[in-house]
Design a binder for these strands. Structure first.
Lengths: 250, 250
DNA sequence: ACTGGAAGTTCCCATATATGAACCAGTGGT
DNA sequence: ACCACTGGTTCATATATGGGAACTTCCAGT
């Protein structure tokens, strides 16, 4: 609606994702040179971006960092999940992730990494397509069918591996199965060689934020017990977290 | 330069500071009603703000949180200081703070709180006037006189307690004394009843970021040994941190 | 010294934004 | 029912931004 504001915010997202960008990358991002100047100047002036004259790279500035610390929309959730996540990673030995849903993407808000040297590279703040991940499908299952339909139909869903499901109708069926089984899986649908089991934790109705918990592991460390063997520990962790938040154990 | 971008960013700062704001507060902040609409809509749409229809409050959104995690401008510094700060707080029993300088303000980037129930309320991300705090004066001492003069003369410096020094000339003299003594103090210049001793850690030339370390305590827990007794432990901590960063111990 | 590429600047005008004022709607108090 | 207050909307228009293209630096490679 307000073009330049939208653009400035989109640029922050872009730079956050890239780590650092050159002027030309900003232009390639879709902002014409002459407009990019003014915008970059404004953002550097106000402390939202840092510009190094040496390297000629633009990076996020201190204001960007500071604002992250002021956000407390899910602090309670992360705190409540902390202990259960510690227990889960030590029991299972695989990476445990807590994510919330935003639009059709899941955003990791807490991670406990597997002690194995071979593990998935994921980091807090990372944003992934919900239709292609286990935790994403667990999150989608907290929404109504019509809501899932609306959200997924709005854009083309990328196919990330040969297992990725991209038809909305089929995703709706899968999500329905998740509701009945109680857990969602990702069987190399996001990254080849990577499997994941996830359970929904809280719905948007309950806490204002939909969140889910997952365990992610390389294909090689799974056997015939996958994914069922992972469900009970995830359920226990969920009960523990929901109890810590003062919600019904489910 | 780009008004609406600047405004959007300033609004994020404002909301971060306030925690949550109502429409009217945004208008009072200086954005006319009709403009505020478009801007708030844009920012909510893009996920930078959350709006609750129930409470009619605007808060920071997930994107604001996410971007904070992408900033790594001082991660090395915070990591390098971590152990020394732990040691310092356990030795002194008073709140230890790490801050960097931005303009004429110091921003806390790490804190170890005193175990005493009575302690200063400070939090990571907090931004205070450098001329009125010990850590701020330690930070200013890493700049040249002319730079300090330029920065402080640009705006009126607020008087926060009856001890606050607000004349630039006198601050220049104080900062010069800090350079010779090696430490800066704040003797109830920021908050009545609050004293602080600080040392500069690294200069902007060395690491691109000026940082300082401080110990803050209530007046009542100080005696005649203040502030000198705090200097040696701060010096040791500084050496330890600088060593961890691969810099000369000073 | 020459060349190519990226950064940064300038100009102008079509287009989008900003804004004051008037107006509508919902809520809570009396 | 009425009033006061806040949130939200609409409109017309003065003003600021956006963007294409040509131009200037600056720098690194040859």
């Amino acid at each position: 609606m307000v073009k330049s504001a939208e653009r400035a915010l989109a640029l922050l997202d872009f730079i956050a994702e890239q780590g650092q960008v050159r002027f030309q990358e900003v232009v390639d991002f879709g902002i014409p040179k002459s407009s990019a100047h003014g915008l970059l100047h404004t953002m550097v002036e106000s402390g939202w971006l840092d510009y190094s004259e040496q390297t000629r790279y633009y990076k996020l500035g201190l204001h960007a960092w500071q604002i992250g610390h002021s956000y407390d929309g899910h602090r309670g959730l992360v705190d409540a999940a902390s202990e259960a996540m510690d227990i889960l990673v030590s029991r299972l030995g695989e990476t445990v992730q807590l994510a919330r849903l935003e639009g059709i993407e899941n955003v990791y808000i807490a991670i406990r990494e597997s002690p194995h040297p071979m593990r998935m590279a994921s980091s807090v703040g990372m944003r992934l397509h919900a239709h292609a991940t286990g935790i994403g499908k667990a999150l989608l299952s907290t929404l109504s069918d019509s809501e899932v339909d609306t959200r997924l139909s709005a854009v083309a869903l990328p196919r990330l591996t040969e297992n990725t499901v991209t038809e909305v109708d089929e995703i709706l069926r899968i999500v329905d199965r998740v509701r009945h089984l109680g857990f969602a899986v990702d069987d190399e649908e996001f990254i080849a060689g990577c499997r994941c089991v996830a359970v929904p934790l809280v719905s948007e109705d309950e806490t204002g934020v939909a969140a889910a918990l997952s365990v992610t592991m390389p294909f090689q460390r799974t056997d015939a017990s996958w994914p069922h063997a992972f469900y009970p520990p995830l359920q226990e962790a969920r009960s523990m977290i929901r109890k810590a938040m003062g919600l019904a154990p489910t």
